[in-house]
């Protein structure tokens, strides 16, 4: 039977090293299967976070040969086997143990976004055309691969100044909703730091749900900020409309 060598990170944020494991490769096997094989046959204390094994819960985010991926969605036969396959925890968040990282910062950011606020006592018929755009963003499984790959959080650790792509799509989802009444442009420009994003699109490249994060959420949000803060023509037109 074909074999692969997995080079897996073992340790935490302070200390750690990689360890090689030989794993038999079966047809249709994914990297998560190989990790569970290691757990069952070599090291029972290997920490791996997973839940659905169907690319839907967003728990199993790792870095496979240096590329942020869901381990349950990465087939072993898609990886070259002439070198050991490296499996690391995601880099932008502190390691708790082995492949498990502490991602609570994300949930804290989520709380800072004003929730959906429809108008009081007003009924409106919702058309598919109006909600379709936001629906793309609702596919998010919160795997945080986009947060992890974004160089602003990963290399600069600018977690004080930037919410990251996952929460920019959350803001886009709410902002583009036809019934929402909250103006989040102040938050977007300041706390969420949409201006920090330099649209280099790595978030879009790694998203397992194929959400077009940059094109459909971040750039439109940047344009909305321009409407409000950098476009005098738009400002005059909107004032005239108000009058």
């Amino acid at each position: 039977m074909a074999e692969a060598v997995l080079r897996v990170f073992r340790g935490d944020s302070e200390n750690g090293e990689t360890k090689d494991y030989k794993v038999p490769v079966e047809e249709g096997m994914v990297v998560l299967d190989a990790l569970l094989y290691i757990q069952a046959n070599y090291d029972g204390d290997l920490a791996v976070r997973w839940n659905c094994k169907a690319a839907k819960c967003g728990s199993c985010s790792t870095e496979i040969n240096g590329i942020p991926k869901l381990s349950c969605k990465t087939r072993m036969d898609s990886l070259p086997r002439d070198e050991p396959i490296t499996v690391y925890p995601i880099k932008a968040f502190p390691v708790i143990k082995d492949l498990v990282t502490d991602v609570k910062w994300n949930y804290q950011k989520q709380k800072e976004i004003p929730p959906f606020t429809p108008p009081e006592d007003e009924e409106m018929i919702m058309y598919q055309d109006d909600v379709e755009r936001s629906q793309e963003f609702r596919k998010c499984i919160e795997c945080f691969l986009c947060q992890n790959v974004c160089h602003i959080l990963r290399d600069n650790n600018a977690k004080e100044s930037f919410f990251g792509p996952r929460y920019l799509i959350k803001i886009a989802e709410l902002d583009m909703h036809p019934l929402d009444t909250v103006d989040r442009s102040e938050l977007l420009r300041n706390e969420a730091g949409v201006g920090f994003c330099n649209i280099t699109k790595c978030c879009t490249e790694v998203c397992p749900e194929n959400i077009r994060i940059t094109d459909n959420a971040i750039i439109p949000l940047k344009e909305r900020v321009v409407d409000k803060y950098f476009d005098p023509i738009n400002w005059i037109l909107s004032k005239l409309k108000e009058d």
Binding site: D12, S13, P89, V95, N157
Partner: peptide, 9 residues
């Protein structure tokens, strides 16, 4: 600027 000592690559 690595997040931690072991993520410094």
């Amino acid at each position: 600027m690595a997040i931690s000592a072991t993520q410094n690559y």
